[in-house]
Simulated scan of single mutants.
Amino acid sequence: MTTTRTIRANGIALNVATAGQGPALLLLHGFPHTWQIWEPVLAALAQRFTVIAPDLRGLGDSERPESGYTAMDVVQDMVALLDVLEVSGTDVVGIDLGTPPAFLLAATHPERVRRLVVMESLIGPLPGAEDFLRGGPPWWFGFHSVPGLAESALAGNEASYLDFFLQAGTLGDGVTPEFRKAVHTAYRGGPALRAAFEHYRAFADSGRQIVRALAASRLRVPTLTIGAAPVGDATYRQLEPVTDTLSGVVLDNCGHIIPQHRPELLLEALNGFLV
């Protein structure tokens, strides 16, 4: 059974879903997602783990602060959340926007992270993603990064814009109706969009945080990269030179929103790594 509650951590109110029992497993979603992205795999994971699936700051039903949207800000939220829940160590899984903070959590707090799984996102400016970026970064990165622009342009058209990502991210197969409804609700209106796009506007600062973390130490935590379309093995290539214990898999015929598009493939990969 999944329950949701509001937990104050690092000075903000986070909406957090939990399920199951056993060792902790922290799941970090991306854009345009909420914690419900994990629902197709949550029941199976809850048979082995105490699953902790927060809405990231500014997203879903979590509070929308005016500032503080770097990857390290999210890391501090997660450390504070684990403290409130009295969790000393956890496995961590991140997808899309959740990948950089998942990486930074493992890199800067290795004593809190047993194993790390990162999916379908680049790790800031690290080398290795040249093939993925050959045509330039995704167009929406620039659109989202201009303060005030995207939320103004999208006013009243949020649903069609969000559906573009939901359909493209599953190779046209679509997401569950429940998840689509949750996304449409979560990202409706200027304040919700503004908070979401602040994560993109913080990309440069987040990239510098990643570089500083790796200047201090290699990534010591055992790590798995899971790629699909379109990121493929780019994340693996980025992490290979800087990670002590790394494995990677690219899922066939799988779109970007892996938990919604191919939950059975994701569970297979996770069950083989989170042992």
Rank of each mutant, 00 (worst) to 15 (best):
V113T: 03
L116V: 09
H109W: 06
H109F: 13
I52F: 09
L45S: 15
V93H: 12
Q76K: 14
P65H: 06
H109L: 00
T50W: 13
S88N: 05
D77T: 08
E111C: 04
S88Y: 12
G58I: 07
E86A: 15
L122P: 11
M72E: 13
V74I: 14
G68R: 08
L105A: 03
R57N: 06
D131F: 08
V51P: 01
G128P: 00
M119E: 12
E130N: 05
Y69F: 08
A71Q: 01
P125T: 00
S121P: 05
A46M: 02
P23I: 13
G89N: 11
T34Q: 01
L26N: 11
D83L: 10
A53I: 00
R115C: 06
S88D: 12
L104D: 00
M78I: 07
L85V: 11
S62F: 11
E111D: 14
V117R: 07
T90H: 14
G60T: 02
H33G: 05
T99G: 11
I37F: 06
L25W: 10
R57M: 14
T70P: 14
R112V: 07
V117G: 15
A43S: 12
P101K: 06
G68K: 03
G60P: 03
L85S: 12
L105R: 05
V84G: 14
Q21F: 09
I95L: 08
R64S: 15
Q36E: 15
G128N: 01
G98D: 01
I95P: 10
G22V: 15
G89M: 13
F49T: 15
